[in-house]
Design a protein around this nucleic acid. Structure first.
Lengths: 142, 142
DNA sequence: TTGACATCGTTGCATTTGCAACGATACAAT
DNA sequence: ATTGTATCGTTGCAAATGCAACGATGTCAA
């Protein structure tokens, strides 16, 4: 009879830690603002990259395009971003932050930084090695 | 104006890696058998721990009790486990693997082992340190 | 030009999810 | 015994999710 411990199973460990960390962080900003993880990701990317299409966000932020689309619609209705069609390729949208969108990010980013600092403190000195290993896991196949 | 890179944000990195790894693994066994992640977790725990309650699984496997309950019902209908009420405390159930349930685990566990070996190979030598750091992230507060 | 094919963003739909009831059972205090 | 409180597993429900259409637009070749 084979032995197998779920506790030591790497995919399980990753899932548990990721879910807990993500939950912890989302509680921080859900407490102050009303925002979901997809919305947070869309706003962050727009804040960094400037006006881009749904497709571009989808690729850079690891979310299905329908998820990006719906998050963008909610954010538009809430006044954090605007949609306009790209004049050069009218299939594309150009999403851009509004003043209010920038202001909101300026409020949240410090909270994100602070949260990450707390995580790093928990992790101790091994931070860089940990991140490197994490990225190795993304490599396909083999 | 503050700078913030989602790519370097630890909760995001964790979420992406975890989702990818989990997806990759679930494809492996969804290809051979018809099973979801919650069902896999329930079966694994029963395989290790013997007959236990829903509550026990919930605590040890990091899932909401409704999730455990529904997974257990599906597994019961599929013939992989049985439910009986605990005689000493009739609020509790006692879930136990059937012959078929054991057989299914004996099929899947080798696939899980093989998959983990592939992950470890990707990660290189830093495996142990990585796991340690991962667990540190679970420590509450501060 | 036309036609075949690809890509964009949205939406419909079935499934899954988290959360809050709920009934049933246990237990402790009076 | 009765009452109040806690815990168990299930279920209802609203929201979120992934996936596959779909219409609209672009591209390229004949």
């Amino acid at each position: 009879m084979s032995q197998f411990s779920l506790d030591d199973f790497l995919p399980y460990q990753l899932a548990v830690v990721s879910a807990r960390v993500s939950r912890e962080f989302s509680q921080i900003y859900a407490e102050h603002f009303d925002m979901t993880v997809p919305e947070w990701r869309v706003l962050v990317h727009l804040h960094n990259a400037g006006p881009v299409s749904i497709r571009e966000i989808q690729a850079r932020v690891d979310m299905d395009k329908s998820k990006v689309s719906r998050a963008a619609s909610r954010l538009e209705k809430a006044g954090f971003l605007t949609k306009e069609t790209n004049a050069e390729d009218r299939r594309l949208l150009k999403l851009g932050l509004t003043e209010q969108g920038y202001a909101r990010m300026e409020q949240i980013i410090p909270l994100a930084d602070e949260f990450e600092q707390r995580l790093l403190k928990r992790m101790g000195a091994d931070t860089d090695a940990f991140r490197d290993t994490l990225l190795k896991l993304l490599k396909e196949d083999s």
